[in-house]
């Protein structure tokens, strides 16, 4: 029995990675849920928006690295992030003016907007591939670890190492700040409240003198910020590959729906639910159980419920279970 090592192993392999991944999903899901609430459709291009934002940031990061600019221990990408957000915001607002606005004026059925977003998804996907290619891009610099496994072992004398990557720390800190700022904005500022009002009742918002076009523009800017931050954090934590971002669509939708579409709080909760279940179900608990089991009872097998290849199956399974029992999601959203 060695509970301390077991806890460290669990922290190292499950809790820290899942928290970071959960934060990334939550930021992604927040973007989806905002568009669902205000523009009233699920944006299929969201994964590709994240990829575009990350790409913009990467390009600026490379430029800064070329100039020799850096943030010391922190990744240069943080410095490039505002430029990435600005680039993405321009793209999204441009897309809105060129594509979505027409349908809004027509009061198009939301499902038509979903199809429109498919077209936008193709274009953004092609654009990202066109500009940066399909390969993996690594843009993480600065100090890689806040605590490396070796330092931790030397510090504590434990057998099990605990690695806390800079990217994970950054993800968690940034996510907390972004979410706090978003909630403050939505609940405390006039513009934020007008967005909620518009989401609640468009016609009445109009009668109150709220300008729909302004609300929509603010929404796209916020979504650009959320998507770019989520994309960059995911890219720093893992790596940047356009196709991976496209595939994030399922866990992100799952997070938003599990939490309750249209509910920002739900999006965050959903992100963590999905991330924790994905990682817990696909993690091989052999090591952890090995520390916990009394001598001689250590498991022989990997004690892995599902192979990591089935992580999508986990998000999907959780989603179905939630929808079957609580069709509006964990936090009462607008869906189903």
């Amino acid at each position: 029995m060695d509970p301390i090592n077991a806890i460290v192993a669990l922290l190292n392999f499950v809790i820290i990675p899942a928290t970071a991944y959960g934060a990334q999903l939550a930021l992604g899901a927040l973007g989806v849920t905002l568009i669902y609430g205000i523009l009233r459709f699920s944006n299929f291009a969201h994964g590709d928006t994240m990829a575009f934002g990350a790409m913009c940031t990467i390009l600026v990061t490379w430029l800064f690295q070329g100039w020799g600019l850096s943030l010391g221990v922190l990744p240069t990408a943080l410095l490039a992030l505002p430029f990435g957000i600005a680039g993405t915001a321009l793209l999204l607002i441009g897309t809105d003016r060129a594509v979505y606005r027409f349908y809004r004026k027509q009061k198009a059925a939301p499902v038509i907007l979903v199809i429109v977003s498919m077209g936008v998804m193709f274009i953004m996907n092609g654009l990202v591939r066109f500009i940066i290619g399909v390969d993996d891009q690594n843009f993480l610099d600065g100090e890689r670890f806040i605590i490396s496994a070796r330092t931790f072992r030397e510090m504590t004398g434990l057998q099990e190492g605990l690695a806390f990557k800079t990217s994970q720390g950054l993800t968690i800190v940034t996510a907390v700040m972004v979410v706090a700022a978003l909630f403050w904005f939505l609940n405390r500022t006039r513009t934020g409240k007008s967005m909620r009002a518009f989401s609640d009742n468009e016609d009445l918002a109009l009668l109150s003198g709220i300008n729909p076009e302004k609300v929509v523009t603010y929404t796209w800017i916020i979504v650009a910020g959320l998507a770019t931050i989520a994309g960059v954090l995911y890219g720093l934590d893992k790596s940047f590959k356009p196709f991976t971002y496209f595939q994030l669509l399922l866990p992100i939708f799952a997070s938003a729906i599990v939490g309750g579409l249209g509910s920002p709080l739900g999006a965050i909760a959903g992100g963590f639910v999905i991330a924790f279940s994905e990682i817990t179900v696909t993690y091989a608990f052999k090591k952890v159980l090995g520390y916990l089991a009394p001598g001689g009872w250590e498991p022989d097998s990997l004690v892995q419920l599902l192979s990591t290849d089935y992580k999508f199956a986990v998000s999907f399974g959780i989603l179905i279970i939630v929808l079957l029992f609580k069709p509006t999601g964990l936090f009462k959203g607008k869906s189903v």
Binding site: Y36, G37, R40, F41, S42, Y103, Q106, K107, A108, A109, P110, V111, I112, L113, V114, S199, D200, N201, E202, D203, L206, P212, F253, I257, L261, G262, K334, S335, V336
Partner: peptide, 23 residues
């Protein structure tokens, strides 16, 4: 209006007609 025709779709995971403007 062809763009207002949702073909009877009622999938709430992708569409949110609630609160949509009618005027």
């Amino acid at each position: 209006n062809a763009w207002q025709d949702n073909r009877g779709n009622k999938d709430r995971t992708i569409t949110n007609p609630q609160g949509q403007g009618k005027e």
